[in-house]
């Protein structure tokens, strides 16, 4: 039974991946218009027939669609996500260069917002109806209503332009000659504003989720039992109640990741941060099909990977799942 379930899970994921790869190949090609001409139409240059034909052959657009798909699959299997005709570079290289920056931003903000969301959610629900809970709830709902884009612009105007504490853009000072610790400092100081923006836009979601599920948990009889046993308040809060309230939070990590990846697109664009979000923006504005496809494949794989990990670990965190089957 156990193996059957695993096999089923693997099959479902495999089919999802194949379907998404196919969709990913097909969708950009369904866009109306000649790919080569649209790539160059905004430019003040003249495309001769000779140049056009060379470009068509170079990008393999002269081959029938099924052949293009086969080539695409073979390349994909080799880790080759294609060649970006706009940026004259391997799409894999471009994505691999951008990915660490996005991961730095996403993972750090993910952890920070989770910590802040959990602590604030637990504390807020524990003081339900009190001054602290009510004001925090109003504040969080207010922040939740502001788009990440607006938060970013406010941060930029206040902390960068007005006070001059942080740089306006980029991931590091270009050609600063900084090395070692100075370089790390430079990177961190560039990280502060995009990270704060992304984190702040994520905290309300985490907070509301934890607060709600805590409110349900603290009514459970085992909390009363724990109190009756004379266990310290903080221990009941975090080890008895929060641990149980944490479950729905954990299952939503996969979904939250997609939100963070979407959020990062806007934030990286405002702060010109050289990650996947900015690359996506560039790819779409230049109609760079291979790059758009490559980014989608990587994003899809990332989200699926996180989902697999959650599926595998969920029963470790909530052993009841194992018994349920």
């Amino acid at each position: 039974m156990k193996w059957n379930r695993k096999a089923k899970m693997v099959t479902v994921y495999l089919f999802t991946i194949i379907f998404l790869v196919f969709l990913n190949f097909l969708l950009p090609r369904l866009l109306p218009g000649d790919a080569i001409l649209s790539m160059y139409s905004g430019q003040e240059i003249i495309i001769t027939e000779q140049m056009y034909n060379e470009l068509v052959i170079l990008h393999g657009l002269d081959k029938p669609l099924y052949e293009q798909f086969l080539i695409y699959l073979i390349q994909l299997a080799h880790g080759d996500l294609g060649y970006s005709y706009v940026f004259h570079a391997s799409t894999t290289d471009m994505i691999l260069a951008a990915l660490p920056w996005t991961m730095l931003l996403v993972v750090t903000s993910f952890v920070l917002s989770a910590i802040a969301g959990i602590i604030l959610g637990v504390e807020s629900s524990w003081r339900r109806g009190g001054k602290f809970d009510r004001s925090l709830l109003v504040f969080m709902l207010f922040i939740d209503g502001i788009p990440a884009l607006a938060i970013g612009i406010i941060f930029l105007s206040v902390f960068s332009l007005k006070f001059g504490w942080f740089p306006t853009a980029g991931a590091m000072t270009a050609y600063s000659n900084a090395e070692g610790i100075a370089h790390i400092k430079d990177v961190l100081i560039h990280l502060v504003l995009p990270l704060s923006t992304l984190t702040l836009s994520q905290v309300p979601g985490d907070y509301l989720l934890v607060r709600n599920s805590m409110l349900l948990t603290i009514r459970e009889p085992f909390i009363l039992t724990a109190r009756a046993k004379g266990i310290k308040e903080r221990r009941i809060k975090y080890f008895h109640a929060a641990r149980n309230a944490f479950l729905p939070f954990f299952t939503r990590i996969g979904i939250r990741l997609t939100y963070v990846l979407t959020g990062v697109l806007f934030i990286e664009t405002i702060f010109a941060y050289p990650g996947l979000g900015f690359l996506t923006y560039e790819a779409i504005s230049n109609r760079d099909l291979p790059l758009i496809q490559g980014i989608l494949v990587v994003s899809v794989l990332l989200v699926l990977m996180v989902n697999i990990i959650i599926d595998l670990f969920y029963k470790k965190i909530d052993p009841r799942i194992e018994y349920a089957h």
Binding site: L156, S157, S160, P167, T168, A169, G170, I270, F271, A272
Partner: peptide, 13 residues
């Protein structure tokens, strides 16, 4: 040449 989000802000700073 540096890439900036808001070129004008970068100039003012």
């Amino acid at each position: 040449y540096v890439k900036t989000g808001d070129a004008q802000m970068a100039l003012q700073r």
